[in-house]
Write a protein that binds this DNA or RNA. Structure first.
Length: 572
RNA sequence: GCGCCCGUAGCUCAGCUGGAUAGAGCAUCAGAUUUCUAAUCUGAGGGUCCCAGGUUCAAGUCCUGGCGGGCGCGCCA
């Protein structure tokens, strides 16, 4: 992918006798030193020479086998500097070529023939989506797109929480007070109100409690009667509401399959585990002991004392089903880190069953979202609804547009793109594992390391290209490009060159923030560069060369934004 | 009590498989617009990389032990 790194590696390998695989090529601390660096310390022992001497000795030999790449010994390091014209024409050439092939820069088919299953978002029916659900949704969608770009077959699954005793309660509440709320108008809020009311009145009303239990019994029995009809209706109402959010976020799923789907698989699942002989009865429950798998790991419960199954049983059923259906290379669960134990237990059971594909099941955990006033809690009223966050962000975007660019056409659409983009970007920008505190001020900030900053950079580049086209100034064709004219853009070109590795690494680590970090650094460089260099109206070869760079940069920014699920407006 | 995760500038965070003088954004201060969108850019100040040992030619990065915070720990999901 990076022809310069490849030839440097090859040259180093032949001159040192080291394996190309064990050669560590890095970037110099200071870009002025060169584009690639090779520390000579590891060779010192074998060669019985001081690293600076090794560097000096190697430099001359390497210089002969490398064309277009300057070799400099700087202390114990060998630094390599690609000839500026060559760098520019190579990078711009490769990106243009990818573009013409209709393939974004960094995309490949290396995952062809392999399937990645992703379980993400997975909200609970009848509950509003809070900002807390945003993380799983946007992280999962981004990781899916990263794998798509690498040619994997991907299956995004929304594993809806539509089962459990709370649905019996909900049905009972609907039966009692369903008439009193605007179920069809605003389903989720109404359902939440019913749920809260049920809990308030439950204590003093044993009949109500019994109605709830009875309803869930009927649900579980599989009887297709009145209760099931209500449950199905509630599910549809909720899914309809969720879809509005998903479409705002640009998220789609290949499968929407509730937990209820696995009801009929549960018996078989328990049997399958039992036949491997790893189950035992403990305190009346059916468990799998995992204390040998990992020290102090609590057992996994498959069946309660009363014979009913649990979350873990349903997740086992689901993973068996997915494995059978897709024979996945990876099966990723985008679920908060508070459920780490659950997934370790799940994998523990698979391991004890002797299933070697256990290692392909990964819990892609992410940090918890907290409010400044404490942990989020629907009951305590400490929640921030996702809809409200998006609305406020869009409103803020609209306000800024009115202030800075009042004549903008399609301002409403742009405001939606910028507001929603800011929220999504903000959620993806830090490492997954980090806990985040929800602070309105940060979410509504559009300056600095934010989504709108990247979108703005993209819009500026678009604007230059557009104005150039109006004046008849167009990017130079790669073959005709005088790369030497872009000598001062070397940091940008190197960043572009590195992007495919960033994409690959982000997918492998299931870490969208790697793409975000790259984007922020690249936009910073880009903004600084065009601030120093005027593009339009220069001598035609210079304008052409600069436009070619701008064109590539714009394309890569746009496709990176697409990967993380953020829109890239042409103007803002 | 036990297990897992996190700890880098006042705040929020980067820091690639250990490598050269630890970098950004926000906030603060000082600047930049007759010309491609100032949601931008330039500059300044700001560091015991939680602490203590250890491994290594080399540790923010790896190991051990502490401290601080988060999460979890059998019949919820």
């Amino acid at each position: 992918m990076d022809p310069f790194a490849s030839s440097i590696r090859a040259a180093l390998a032949s001159h040192t006798g080291l394996d190309e695989g064990e050669l560590r090529l890095e970037s110099p601390r200071d870009a002025a030193l060169g584009d690639y660096a090779f520390p000579c310390f590891p060779l010192a022992k074998a060669l019985r020479k001081a690293p600076p001497a090794i560097a000096t000795d190697l430099a001359t030999g390497l210089a002969e086998s490398l064309s277009g790449i300057e070799v400099l010994a700087t202390g114990p390091y060998l630094n390599f500097r690609v000839e500026r014209g060559l760098l520019a024409s190579t990078v711009i050439g490769m990106i243009s070529e990818a573009q013409q092939a209709g393939r974004p820069w960094g995309a490949s088919d290396e995952g062809a023939g392999r399937t990645v299953v992703l379980d993400f978002s997975s909200p609970n029916i009848a509950k509003p989506m809070s900002v807390g659900h945003l993380r799983s949704t946007v992280i999962g969608a981004a990781i899916q797109r990263l794998h798509d770009a690498l040619g994997y077959e991907t299956v995004g699954i929304n594993h809806i929480g539509d089962w459990g005793s709370q649905f019996g309660k909900l049905v009972a509440a609907v039966n009692r007070w369903g008439e009193t709320v605007e179920l069809e108008e605003d389903p989720i809020i109404s359902l939440l109100a019913l749920y809260v009311r049920y809990h308030e009145e439950e204590q003093d009303d044993p009949t109500l409690k019994e109605e709830g239990r009875a309803a869930f019994r009927e649900l579980e029995s599989g009887e297709d009667g009145a209760v099931r009809a209500i449950w199905r209706h509630l599910t549809e109402l909720s899914l309809g509401e969720f879809d509005k959010l998903y479409s705002r976020l640009g998220v789609t799923f290949d499968e929407v399959r509730g937990e209820s789907f696995y009801e009929t698989h549960l018996e078989g699942t328990v049997k399958r585990v039992e036949t491997t002989g790893i189950t035992e009865m403990s305190e009346g429950a059916l468990i799998v002991d995992l204390s040998e798998t990992e020290k102090n790991m609590p057992p996994c419960l498959l069946r309660k004392t009363d014979g009913t199954t649990l979350y873990a049983t349903r997740d086992l059923a689901a993973v068996f089903h997915r494995h059978q259906l897709y024979n996945f290379e990876r099966c990723l669960y985008m679920v908060g880190s508070d459920q780490k134990l659950h997934f370790r237990q799940l994998k523990g059971v698979l391991a004890r069953m002797g299933l070697d594909w256990e290692q392909r099941v990964e819990h892609i955990a992410f940090g918890m979202l907290r409010l400044p006033e404490g942990k989020m809690s629907t009951r305590a009223g400490r929640v921030v609804f996702l809809d409200d966050v998006l609305d406020r962000a869009v409103e803020e975007a609209r306000r800024i547009i009115a202030e800075k660019n009042p004549s903008l056409e399609g301002a409403d659409e742009v405001a939606e793109a910028v507001g929603v983009g800011a929220v999504v970007f903000n959620d993806l920008k830090r490492e997954r594992v980090k806990d985040v505190e929800f602070v309105w001020e940060e979410v509504l900030s559009f300056e600095g390391e934010t989504g709108p900053y990247v979108q703005y950079t993209h819009a500026r580049l678009s604007s230059i290209l557009r104005k150039g086209a109006e004046a008849g100034e167009v990017p130079s064709e790669p073959q005709a490009l005088d790369g030497a004219l872009l000598a001062d853009a070397a940091p940008l070109l190197m960043a572009l060159l590195r992007f495919p590795d960033v994409l690959r690494s982000a997918a492998a680590h299931a870490e969208p923030s790697e793409v975000v970090s790259w984007l922020l650094a690249f936009c910073r460089e880009t903004n600084a560069w065009y601030g120093r260099n005027r593009v339009l109206g220069q001598e035609s070869a210079l304008t052409g060369a600069r436009l070619a760079l701008i064109q590539c940069s714009k394309l890569v920014i746009a496709s990176s934004l697409q990967l993380i699920g953020v829109a890239a407006p042409e103007e803002m």
